[in-house]
C-alpha cells in the first residue's frame, strides 16, 4: 500500500477540521473548536486498482499573529487550500498559503476549497468563478467534499 501525506492549509476557522471530519468520519459538528498543532487522520482509497492510504494532516489555521510551523510542510505530496467563501480575507490570503507550501514542496499537487458554501444563496453561488481544481464545498451539507479529496489524489498519483 502506498502512503501519501496531504495537508489542509488555510486561515483559522475556514472549516479544515470539518472537511476532514466529513470525509473521514462522515460527520459534522457546527461548534467551532480551534485546532492547535496538527491532527493526522487516515483514509484508504483505491484509484485505478491501486490502494492508497491518505494521511491527512489537519494543520492549525494561521492567524494574523501566528504562522504555521514549516516542519509540518515537509514531505507532503499534496495540499488542500481551504478558504471560507464568505470571508474575503481568507480568499485574499490564499496566495500566501500556496507560496509557502510550494516553496517547501515545489512538485506537490494541490486543490482549492471554497468552503462553507451552504451559507450562500444559489444566485451567489452562480456568480463565483471557479478555476480549475477549485471546489465550492460544504462540510455541513456534504457537498463536493469527497470530490475534493479524490481530485487531489488523482493529481498526486495518476
Amino acid at each position: 500500500m502506498i502512503r501519501k501525506k496531504i495537508l489542509l492549509l488555510g486561515d483559522f476557522s475556514v472549516g479544515k477540521t470539518s472537511l476532514v471530519r466529513r470525509y473521514v468520519d462522515g460527520a459534522f459538528d457546527d461548534k467551532y473548536l480551534t485546532t492547535i498543532g496538527v491532527k493526522i487522520s487516515k483514509k484508504l482509497l483505491t484509484l485505478n486498482g491501486e490502494e492508497y492510504e491518505m494521511l491527512i494532516w489537519d494543520v492549525e489555521g494561521s492567524t494574523p499573529s501566528k504562522k504555521i510551523s514549516l516542519g509540518y510542510y515537509r514531505g507532503a505530496s499534496g495540499a488542500i487550500f481551504v478558504t471560507d467563501v464568505n470571508r474575503q480575507e481568507t480568499l485574499d490570503s490564499l496566495a500566501d498559503h500556496k507560496e509557502i507550501f510550494l516553496n517547501e514542496n515545489p512538485d506537490a499537487a494541490y486543490v482549492v476549497a471554497y468552503n462553507k458554501a451552504d451559507m450562500l444563496s444559489e444566485v451567489a453561488k452562480e456568480k463565483i468563478e471557479l478555476k480549475d481544481d477549485t471546489f465550492l464545498t460544504s462540510a455541513k451539507d456534504d457537498n463536493n467534499v469527497e470530490a475534493l479529496f479524490i481530485r487531489l489524489m488523482e493529481k498526486m498519483v495518476l
Binding site: R3, K4, K5, I36, G37, V38, K39, I40, K42, E53, L55, E60, S69, G71, Y72, R74, G75, A76, S77
Partner: peptide, 27 residues
C-alpha cells in the same frame, strides 16, 4: 504515520549524529 514523507530526512540521521528531526504539537 506522522513520519511518512520524511523518511529520507530521518534516514540521514543514522549517518549524521548531529542531525535530528522534530515535530511539535501533534495530536
Amino acid at each position: 504515520p506522522e513520519l511518512v514523507g520524511s523518511e529520507e530526512e530521518i534516514q540521514e540521521i543514522f549517518s549524521k549524529p548531529h542531525l535530528n528531526y522534530v515535530l511539535e504539537s501533534v495530536y
